[in-house]
């Protein structure tokens, strides 16, 4: 059994308020695990917020229930993991490959940024829930 040193979970309507709540959870999580280096905290926080924002901005409800955002973050001795989920959502539409926007484009950099920030990104869809699993191998 992998040892989880600290964790935080959030679930709520996929709204702007949710982004601030998730960020506050991350800030408080890092206080529990001061041995996680600043660079790891910074990169992982950015990747989680990018992923959660992507859901708030783009996830569409599959039925009558509005989309919920779920974020589960765990810190293991040398691994940071986040499961960022869109509940009651349609499958993602369009390519999930990162784009290379023009330098004066005002959007389209999120996916490439996430990939640059973490070690692995995987996608799961189960029971109407889209989940992006982000991991970052930390410096320890």
């Amino acid at each position: 059994m992998t040892k989880v040193l600290a964790s935080r979970s959030f679930r709520g309507p996929a709204s702007e308020d949710a982004i601030e709540s998730v960020h506050n959870h991350l800030d408080s999580l890092w206080l529990d695990v001061p041995f996680v280096q600043d660079m790891d905290q910074m990169t992982f926080t950015t990747a989680v917020i990018e992923s959660a924002s992507n859901i708030v901005q783009h996830a569409e409800p599959a039925g009558q229930d509005p989309v919920d955002l779920g974020v589960d973050i765990s810190v293991q001795p040398t691994l940071l993991q986040a499961r960022v989920s869109a509940y009651h959502a349609k499958p993602p539409f369009g390519p999930m490959e990162p784009a290379t926007p023009d330098e004066d484009a005002e959007s389209g950099r999120g996916l490439a940024l996430i990939q640059a920030l973490v070690t692995t990104v995987t996608f799961e869809r189960q029971d109407g829930t889209n989940t992006w699993v982000l991991t970052r191998t930390s410096q320890g």
Partner: peptide, 16 residues
């Protein structure tokens, strides 16, 4: 203290 790709997009919009 923090900027994501949305924030970056806004700065680019302001630059333009």
């Amino acid at each position: 203290a923090f900027m994501d790709s949305s924030g970056l997009g806004a700065l680019i919009g302001c630059l333009k």
